[in-house]
Design a protein around this nucleic acid. Structure first.
Lengths: 317, 317
DNA sequence: CCATAGATTAAGTGAGACTAATGCTACCAG
DNA sequence: CTGGTAGCATTAGTCTCACTTAATCTATGG
């Protein structure tokens, strides 16, 4: 069906120079080889591509058409391969990264921006989603690597993935100060808070139940859920409106807690942690661009003001 | 520089099926051959195109990019080759034809139209020009064949061209009836007409001199040229305005002569003929479309009303 | 008219494309 | 846990075919 592709390449050079000899020079072979290739291509296609004039080849209409098909490809290929090669010397091109919704929306844009300061030829696509979705994206080759919640969602990404912890989020139960004072009356005992109002985050259905199980060792099957939101921001709004309590990552409300608008409700147990890890194929050889970005990312996450934001949290006693 | 093109084809199929085995089936080779090809391509490009997961290949970003380059080409190539093949069964595609200006403008459109009634998939481009220009177009492969004046312009298209006479134009000296009566006073002798007014056609500078040489055996170096036009239509207008005489193909003024508005001035010699021939490369194998059209063209030119138009001419005695 | 340039053709050879067989490893069924 | 299987990689061996060298052909230019 399809002809030998190398012969198409030969044809391209023959057409370009309207000459077997010039093609032979371009391809570093003898004119004889080119002539034979051309002949075989014409046989394969059962179509004369040139009319032979002594010392000259004049393309037939079919030859013209074939060339019109091949030419743009040659151009694309050459520039495409070049830019792929450039990527090996200097970070450039597109980096496709997956992340959990909140982390991706709030932390990553800043990191992307600072990276692009140094490497303006790098662009990003950010895919937000839950661990299952992101793993799927990885499997399909749609993203280079993903930042994934690897603790709360205790999936076992065994074997083929390399998993490198990046940062631990504290998962805390929050309420507005007013709610804490007036509704809870500063009493954070199990009995007092369990039947109060809650705001949940429907993308992470288990997070509230998990918090209870961890802190009180009990499985609660039904809460008094007065609001169900689809984003961390929505949950914070609900809490600030004194509608009830909610469970989320502390760093997202770090400022509010420091200002005193929101309080984090603790128990005697250490706060539960959600570990965000960088997940990628174990035996994937990362490109220069990937390596460079990942280093930048790690450095960024190690900065004091970042780690502080993620860990220093004032809890109710 | 550029990789082995057949390996790009292999890569295309591997990517398409995300599998070495499926590619091997498509290409009718063993799995091993595909695997080796892929490996060598990656070596040539110094770029990993897939990350190997057990039983699965996941394209890297470079793999994605390469595929994006190759995919449109494969699509184009397949459909392009198909349509080239179709051309062998049914006339279709573009036919690029050259012709002298007058003949092309006046005769050919009608012929094209009638051909397209039968073969609507055929389109045309018509290039008008003098013999040198048309031969040049032929040489460059810009046109499939040309209709060329091969008599008046006694170029010798030797060797590589096949030249097939298509029609003979009578070349006549014309004047308006009024001019013939009042200025020439019905006297068409050499002495009477040689110093009268003439209208010439600058694209065919020699035509008037040739007419004199043929009919009177004399080379006239200078005529009283009162108007020089760039088209046959312009010459006819000049003649009809009684400005003078001019030499041109009779069939272009066939009706005017029959109506008596214009007279053709003859001598005892037979009228000079301009032969229009179909010129193409001798050893070119014409496509089905070309052959079919050329047959249609010949049949058209053989029709009575066409031959009549070109030959039946009433001359002054 | 010879010399030349450019294409084609013919014959021989070595690289490399392909096959067959084996190895490897994750996944699945029982 | 264990054997079976699916899919890719690897290896060794074979043979095709891409390439070279050399000869042939022919329009063209000096």
């Amino acid at each position: 069906m399809l002809p030998d592709f190398n012969r198409l390449k030969v044809f391209y050079y023959v057409y370009s120079g309207k000459s077997v000899i010039s093609a032979a020079q371009m391809l570093n072979v003898t004119q004889s080889a080119v002539s034979q290739h051309l002949k075989k291509l014409e046989e394969e296609l059962k179509t004369l591509l040139f009319t032979r004039l002594h010392k000259r080849l004049v393309p037939t209409y079919e030859g013209e058409r074939l060339f019109e098909i091949i030419k743009p490809f040659m151009v694309e290929l050459e520039s495409g391969l070049q830019s792929i090669k450039d990527t090996k010397v200097k970070p450039s091109g597109l980096l496709r990264i997956g992340a959990p919704a909140e982390f991706g929306k709030i932390q990553l844009p800043e990191i992307f921006a600072s990276f692009r300061q140094k490497y303006p030829d790098v662009t990003f696509t950010l895919t937000l989603g839950n661990p299952e979705y992101l793993i799927n994206m990885l499997n399909e080759g749609q993203i280079e690597f993903a930042l994934i919640d690897t603790f709360l969602t205790q999936k076992d990404f065994s074997g083929i993935y390399s998993i490198e912890p990046v940062i631990d989020e504290e998962i805390v139960l929050i309420a507005s100060s007013k709610y804490y004072e007036e509704v809870l009356k500063r009493d954070t005992s199990f009995e007092n808070i369990v039947d109060k109002e809650y705001i949940t985050f429907h993308a992470k259905g288990m997070i509230l139940k998990n918090w209870y199980r961890y802190h009180f060792g009990k499985m609660i099957s039904k809460f008094n859920i007065v609001l169900n939101v689809d984003s961390a921001l929505g949950l914070v709004s609900g809490v600030k409106s004194h509608m009830g309590m909610g469970v989320m990552a502390s760093h997202l409300v770090h400022e509010d807690i420091q200002k005193g608008d929101i309080v984090a409700i603790g128990t005697d147990k250490k706060d539960i942690l959600n570990r965000i890890s960088l997940v990628q194929f174990q035996d994937k050889k990362p490109s220069l661009t990937e390596k460079t970005f990942q280093n930048h990312f790690r450095d960024f996450m190690k900065q004091d003001h970042v780690t502080a934001k993620f860990s220093k949290i004032i809890r109710t006693p």
